[in-house]
Design a binder for these strands. Structure first.
Length: 493
RNA sequence: GAGCCGUUAGCUCAAUCGGUAGAGCAACUGACUCUUAAUCAGUAGGUUGCAGGUUCGAUUCCUGCACGGCUCACCA
C-alpha cells in the first residue's frame, strides 16, 4: 500500500527529524525575485566574462528535479512555472552544516535559493547558491527522470504528476489556454460580447445528443446539463445583443472515444446582419491566426498528415461532395430507393429512419467525411437534418449552412439562423416526431424559445467550434484526453 | 454495448517450453568540488491488478471480475 511504502516511510522519518531540529518543513515566507526563464532570457547570451560583472543576487524557488552530488559540492536542477535552471551548491560557500542539511533533500522537494549567476565549464547558466531553504518536504518519490510517466491511466488520473515530469504535456495545455485567449481577443476586437448562459436546462436543446439528467431538490425539478448553448444565445440576440459569443462546457451523455469526452468545450458565436458566408470567412481568419501564431506558418502536421490552412478553403455543397468524394451515382441523389440500396450495400444500419436526406447524411459520414483532410467547407445540407438553419433562397430543400472538416473530422458547424417563427415551430415538431420512437422524455418542444422568435430575431448567422478538437489539431494530439486536463475516467478501485 | 491488447518494485521495462521473479532509474550506506541520464562500490525493495480453476509446481495455461488503451457500434 502506498501509505506504508518504504520510500514514503523513509521520508516521513526525515520529516520528523527535521521537526525535531526545529526546521519548519512547510514555511511560506520565502520571497521569490526571479523565475528560471527570467535569468535565461536576461543572461543566457552573455559571455562568461560579462557574467562575472553581474553583481546582482537572485532569489528563486522551485521543485528539485535532479540532484548530482559530489563529495563537497552538488548540482541540482530546479523547476519552476517557467522552466528549469541549474544551481550549484559548494560546501566552501554555503558552509559545512548547511551542506550536510542539503544532503537530506530529495528529488521532488521544493527549495528556495539565493545566489549569483555564472556559467559552468560546460557553459551552462547556473545559479551559484549562497544560501537556501527547504520550502516543502515531499513524501512521495517522483516518477523516473528519464522515461518519466508513460502509463496512460496514471497520466490521466494523476495529471499533476504528468505535468511535473512531462514538459510536452504542460506545453499542450499552455497552447490550449493561448487558443482560448486568442478567441476572446478576436471576438472582442470585432465588437462581440462574451456571455454566460445556463448549464442547467429545463429542456435540452440546440442539438440532438442525449443529455445528462440531474435534479434540483428545493424546486423539485428535473434538469438537464446543457448539450448546446444555442437556444439561449439566440434569446440574447433577440434581446438586442447583436454579437455574442460563449466559450464554455457542454455535456453529452454518449460514448467516450478519442474524439469524445462527456464534457467538452464549445465556442459559439452569433452575429446579426451576417450570413453563413461571412461566418466561413471569419472562421478562416480566426483559425488561421492561431495556426500562424502557434506554427509560424499556415501549415502543420497532424498525426503524420500535412495540413495546409492557406485560405480560401475549399467549399463544396453536400450533394456535390457525395459525387466528388463519395463517387456515388447521380441517381443516389435523386432517388431515395437508390440511396437506400447503396447504404445497404455498404452495410450501414439505417436506424434513424430511411428518409432520403437521412440516408444521404449516413452516406456522407461513411464515404465523404474521412476523405476531407485539408480544411473543407461542406455547404447546403438537407433542410431535414438542419432544424435550426435558414432555408436556402433558391432551393428550400437545403439550408444556408456549412460544416468545416479538417483531418476527416468535424471542427465547426455554422449557418444563417432560421428566424421565421412558423417554419421554426414546424421543423422542431418534425424533429420531435422523428425521435418519438426513442421514448426519450427529455425531448419536448421549447415553447419559450419559439415565443422568443415570435418577438422577432434579426437576420443572424451563428456558428459553433469544438475547442478540444481544434486544440488536438494544433498540438498534434491523437486523443481528446490529451487536451483535457482531467478527462472522465471510471472510479479507481 | 462488442472485439482485440494490456496490468510484474515508487517509475520504466525483462523473465526461453509451466520450474527459486530480474535490470535501470529513484531510495539507503560509502567515495568523489564543474556535473548534466554524472561516475564508482555496496545494501534494501515484490500478495506479478483481484477472485477462482487446472497442475507436484502458475507472472506464464483456463474462467470470471476490475481498471486502462485501441477499433467498432451508439451519437452531435
Amino acid at each position: 500500500m502506498d501509505e506504508t511504502s518504504d520510500l514514503t516511510q523513509q521520508r516521513i522519518r526525515k520529516l520528523e527529524s527535521l521537526r525535531r531540529e526545529g526546521i519548519d518543513p512547510y514555511p511560506n515566507d520565502f520571497k521569490v525575485t526571479h523565475a528560471s526563464k527570467d535569468l535565461h532570457e536576461a543572461y543566457g547570451s552573455l559571455s562568461d566574462e560579462e557574467l562575472k560583472s553581474v553583481g546582482e543576487t537572485f532569489c528563486l524557488a522551485g521543485r528539485i528535479m535532479a540532484i548530482r552530488n559530489f563529495g563537497k559540492a552538488s548540482f541540482i536542477q530546479v523547476q519552476d512555472r517557467k522552466g528549469r535552471i541549474q544551481a550549484y551548491l559548494q560546501k566552501d560557500i554555503i558552509g559545512e552544516s548547511a551542506f550536510q542539511f542539503f544532503k537530506t533533500f530529495d528529488i521532488g522537494d521544493f527549495i528556495g535559493l539565493e545566489g549569483k549567476i555564472f556559467r559552468t565549464k560546460t557553459h551552462e547558466l547556473t545559479l551559484q547558491v549562497q544560501s537556501f531553504r527547504l520550502l516543502v518536504k515531499t513524501l512521495r518519490p517522483l516518477p523516473e527522470k528519464w522515461h518519466g510517466l508513460t502509463d496512460v491511466e496514471a497520466r490521466y488520473r494523476q495529471r499533476y504528476l504528468d505535468l511535473i515530469v512531462n514538459p510536452r504535456v504542460k506545453e499542450i495545455f499552455l497552447t490550449r489556454i493561448k487558443v482560448i485567449q486568442k478567441i476572446r481577443d478576436f471576438f472582442t476586437q470585432r465588437d462581440f460580447i462574451e456571455v454566460e448562459t445556463p448549464m442547467l436546462h429545463p429542456i435540452p436543446g440546440g442539438a440532438t445528443a442525449k443529455p445528462f439528467k440531474t435534479r434540483h431538490n428545493a424546486l423539485d425539478m428535473e434538469l438537464y446539463m446543457r448539450i448546446a448553448p444555442e437556444l439561449f444565445l439566440k434569446r440574447l440576440v433577440i434581446g438586442g445583443f447583436e454579437r455574442v459569443f460563449e466559450i464554455n462546457r457542454c455535456f453529452r451523455n454518449e460514448g467516450v472515444s478519442t474524439q469524445h469526452n462527456p464534457e467538452f468545450t464549445m465556442l459559439e458565436f452569433y452575429q446579426s446582419y451576417a450570413t453563413y458566408e461571412e461566418m466561413m470567412k471569419m472562421t478562416e481568419e480566426l483559425l488561421c491566426s492561431m495556426v500562424k501564431e502557434i506554427h509560424a506558418g499556415l501549415c502543420l502536421t497532424y498525426q503524420g498528415k500535412e495540413l495546409d490552412f492557406t485560405p480560401p478553403w475549399k467549399r463544396i455543397s453536400f450533394k456535390e461532395s457525395l459525387l466528388e468524394y463519395g463517387r456515388v451515382d447521380h441517381s443516389v441523389l435523386k432517388e431515395p430507393s437508390k440511396a437506400i440500396e447503396l447504404a445497404e450495400k455498404l452495410g450501414l444500419e439505417l436506424k434513424k429512419g430511411t428518409s432520403h436526406a437521412r440516408v444521404l447524411a449516413d452516406l456522407f459520414k461513411e464515404k465523404v467525411e474521412p476523405l476531407l483532410l485539408q480544411p473543407t467547407y461542406i455547404t447546403h445540407y438537407p433542410t431535414e437534418v438542419s432544424p435550426l438553419s435558414r432555408r436556402n433562397g433558391k432551393d428550400p430543400e437545403v439550408v444556408d449552412r456549412f460544416e468545416l472538416f479538417i483531418a476527416g473530422r468535424e471542427i465547426a458547424n455554422g449557418f444563417s439562423e432560421l428566424n421565421d417563427p412558423i417554419d421554426q415551430r414546424e421543423r422542431l415538431i418534425q424533429q420531435l416526431k422523428e425521435r418519438e420512437d426513442e421514448a426519450d422524455l427529455s425531448l419536448t418542444l421549447d415553447e419559450d424559445f419559439l415565443r422568443a422568435i415570435e418577438f422577432g430575431m434579426p437576420p443572424t448567422a451563428g456558428e459553433g467550434i469544438g475547442i478540444d478538437r481544434w486544440v488536438m489539431l494544433l498540438t498534434d494530439a491523437p486523443s481528446i484526453r490529451e487536451v483535457i486536463l482531467f478527462p472522465l475516467l471510471r472510479m479507481e478501485k
